[in-house]
Amino acid sequence: MSQDTGHYYVPAPSTYPITGSAALLFLGFGAALTMNKIELGYGLLAIGFAILFYMCFRWFGTVAAESESGKYGLDVDKSFRWGMTWFIFSEVMFFAAFFGALYYMRVLSIPWLAGESEVLGQAAWGAYEGGWPTTGPSDHYEAFTPMGAWGLPAINTAILLTSGVTITYAHWALKENRRDALNKWMLATILLGVLFLSCQIYEYVHAYNDLNLKLDSGAYGSTFFMLTGFHGFHVTVGTIMLIVIYFRCAAGHFTPDRHFGFEGVAWYWHFVDVVWLGLFIFVYLL
C-alpha cells in the first residue's frame, strides 16, 4: 500500500476548510449571542455544530481514504508525526494556563487575601483565613465539601492508567498483525474511556447535589471544574477518535508497519492520561 512515489502528496483543492470556517462563523456568533441570552444564538449554535460534524466526518473520511489508497508516502507519514507532536504540545500549554492559575491562587493570591504578605501588611478582608479548599474571602459564596481523592477519582485514575495499557496491547497486536487481538484491545480501551466518563458524570452530579460544590464555588470550584471539565472534554474527544479508529481497524485499515492514524490517537490518549495524573495530584490529592 505505501509505495513511495518520490512526490510529496499535495491534496487537491478542497471545500472542507471553508465548510469548517462557515461552521466556526455560526459557532462564534452563536456562542456570543447565547452567552448574552439572545434567542437567535441557540439556532446559530445548532447550525454551527451540524456543519462542524459534517465537515469533520467528510474531511477525516477523505484523509482515511487517501491513506488507504496509498497516496501518503513516508514523507507525509513523518509530517503527520511532527504535526501531531506539536499539536499535543499546544494542548499541554492550554492545560498549563489552568494549572498555572491553580498554582497562582493557592500559593499566592489566597495567602495575600488572607493578609499574609509583608508587603501589603494590611488585609482587605478582615478575618479571612485563606487555606485550601476555599470559596474565597467573600461570604457571597456558599460553603461546600471538597472532593475527596480516594473515592471515585482514585478509581478513575486506575481506569485511565489501565486504558493506557490496553491501547499499548492493541498497538503491539497491530504491529504483529494479530487483528482479532487488536480489535479486542481497542474495544477494551474504548470501554474504559466510556467508563471513565460515566464516573466523572456521576462525580459531577454528586458534587452538585451532595457536596454543594459548584462551578461558582469560588476559587476551588472554578479550578476544579474547569480543569477536570476540560480534561473530560479531551477524554470525550479521545474516545470518539478511538471509536473511529476501532471501526477503521475492523474495516481492515492499517498495516503492521504503516498505521499513523492509530498511533496519533494513541499518543493523544496517553496525553490525556498524563494530564489526568497531573489533575489527580494537584486538584484532588494536594
Binding site: L113, G136, S138, H140, Y141, L215, G218, A219, S222
Partner: peptide, 8 residues
C-alpha cells in the same frame, strides 16, 4: 467562576 475576582 472566580479566576480574576478577589471575592472568590
Amino acid at each position: 467562576t472566580s479566576f480574576f475576582n478577589a471575592a472568590g
